[in-house]
Structures are given as C-alpha cells and as structure tokens.
Nucleic acid binder design. Structure first.
Lengths: 87, 87
DNA sequence: CTATTGGTACAGCCACATTTGAAGCGTAGG
DNA sequence: CCTACGCTTCAAATGTGGCTGTACCAATAG
C-alpha cells in the first residue's frame, strides 16, 4: 500500500532499480539518478521509511542497499496477490 | 511506471483486488469500494486508460474485468524486475 | 413519449507530495 | 582546532492529483 506509493515515484523507482544491481553509496547513486543531492536524500529517506532499503555508514560515505525482502514484499503488495493466510 | 502510479492509489488498488476475484458491474463495485459513484467512475477511467481493466456493456450495466495481462504487467513494472531484452 | 436508473464527463477547489535553497551533522585530513 | 567533504534535514514555494458538485449520456421500464 504505502509500499507501492513509495515505488510509484520515478526517482525512487530508478533508485531501487539501480540498487537491485548491487549496493551503492549515495555519491554513486547521484551519477545514475539525475537529481540534486538533497532531493535524492529525501527520496532515499522515503525508501528507508518504507523499509525497502538499508543503509550503512562507511567512513564519510553512506551505502544504500536493497532490503532483502524488498522485491518479495512489493510483489505481495500488488492487488490480487496471494494473501498471506497463515501468520 | 504509470502502471504503478495507477495501482498505488488505495481506491484503485481495492478495485483491482476485487476484480481479481472475478468481473463485476459498477453497481457491485460500489458496495465493495466505499466511495461516491462519481469518484469510482473517475478511478475506473484511470484504470481503463492504464489498460489494467476492460469493460463491456450489458444492458444498463457496465461490467469491469481485470485485463488478462494485468498482473504480469504489474509484476514486470516493479524495479529490478527482469528486463525484456528481446523485442 | 417521459421517467428512472446506471454510469460518465467536466470544472473548480484544496490538500498533500514534491521540489528548492540554505543550514546542520558527522567524519577525515591538514 | 579548522576546513573540506558527504550526506541529511529543515522551511518555505510550487504543482499535481484527488475530491466534490453538477451536468450529461445511454438504456430500460411504464
């Protein structure tokens, strides 16, 4: 629900797509996602809040990576997806 | 892309989810999706434009059904989904 | 034919997300 | 310490999408 909202934005979609190829620091993401740094940071925060990406600081840099269950959770969030019945 | 935008709205998501259980006329959809008629029609138009649903008139009523490839196209629209490489 | 019901289309308002610009934090190095 | 760099966050301006109300079209019933 909120997941799909997070993904439906073009910037965030691109970020996730890039991250699906492997972790990246923000500076690398900047080269592949053509938006100002602070804007990118904002969208990264949205993705972080949605639990779709994880971060780790490495010296001065911050690495972003796709959360492990990201793709599965997105697929499950699609309408008509098989409901989880057994908790 | 525009697909995910269409699905990320709660009303449209619910509509698609209901339709995934089988076709419905608008009057039936109204009972399951608690929004004014106008609004429902508006969202149905968005889904129609996105090619996610199909319509057929039956007397006074209009039946909406999930487009056949709807789920597949949505899954393919997720970031990190396998790209179609061979055109 | 008219009346009624089901559904659609259009125009305007408003809220919310997005964007911008500037300031703030944390870390590395001189 | 002080500066530079990487990144984040805040506050205010902007815009786009969704909602409401109204008018409109299509088809059946009487």
């Amino acid at each position: 629900m909120a997941l799909l909202e997070a993904v439906s934005d073009p910037v965030r979609w691109t970020v996730l797509d890039v991250l699906s190829h492997g972790p990246q620091c923000v500076c690398d993401l900047q080269e592949r996602v053509p938006v100002p740094g602070n804007l990118l940071s904002y969208h990264l925060k949205v993705l972080r809040t949605a639990g779709l990406v994880t971060t780790s600081r490495r010296g001065r840099w911050v690495d972003y990576a796709l959360a492990g269950e990201a793709h599965a959770r997105l697929a499950a969030a699609l309408p008509g997806a098989p409901r989880e019945v057994a908790p």
